[in-house]
Amino acid sequence: MKNLVIGATVLILCLGILYVGVGLEFGVPLFTDMDEYFVSHGQEQTGGNNIVTDIVFDFRGFDTLGEATVLFTAVLGAGLVFRKRGEDEEYEYE
């Protein structure tokens, strides 16, 4: 019974995702105001030719700062997991 409920929920979720995928129209974006502004004004406000880099490093700079922090935190976590242990210190998990 429990498996049936979980299976039905997953099936409905998958059908919903597929419905969203099928319902969208390709090649005609829905909301274009912000991107129109970036394409037409980005070059004169930041001076860079590559609009994607302008957005990443200038318009959405805080986003990139958080992203760099996430990468740094991941490296710190990996270093914490694989830190050096003493030679005689064995794992105590049978």
Partner: peptide, 27 residues
């Protein structure tokens, strides 16, 4: 020109995905 904002957000998503996957594989 195509929309640039979603490409910038995809770039963010790729880097965060790499960080998350590396941490999960370490675990």
């Amino acid at each position: 020109m195509v929309m640039p904002t979603v490409q910038a957000m995809t770039l963010t998503n790729i880097v965060i995905g790499i960080a998350t996957t590396a941490l999960l594989l370490s675990f």
